[in-house]
């Protein structure tokens, strides 16, 4: 059974909150991860990606390859926000 977007988003929100020492309620789908107004620094971002890699493998049964030519693009990256990352991870699940 596939994991819902809401559940994946909750995981990403909690990870970001933990890495940035924020309350999870202060992190939402629009929270920015790369570019202007980001709340995670580059070190936190890598930690988030490592965690997401493991989560995707263990919980979603998929592979999250976070090497991407647009990884740091504010406009195109799947990493641009909590919501875009959660959506990307959700969509990686096998049909």
């Amino acid at each position: 059974m596939s994991v819902s977007y809401d559940e994946v988003e909750k995981y990403v929100r909690e990870e970001v909150a933990s890495l940035t020492n924020r309350d999870a309620t202060a992190v939402g789908p629009e929270t920015v991860l790369v570019g202007t107004n980001r709340i995670v620094d580059s070190a936190d971002l890598v930690m988030l990606l490592l965690s997401a890699e493991e989560y995707t493998r263990e919980k979603l049964g998929a592979v999250f390859d976070w090497t991407s030519d647009s990884a740091m693009s504010e406009a195109r990256s799947v990493l641009r926000s909590v919501g875009s990352l959660a959506r990307h991870l959700t969509d990686l699940q096998p049909a």
Partner: peptide
């Protein structure tokens, strides 16, 4: 470096 760096970061 790409392959091993994540474990060093961890």
């Amino acid at each position: 470096c790409q392959q091993v760096a994540p474990s060093l970061i961890m």
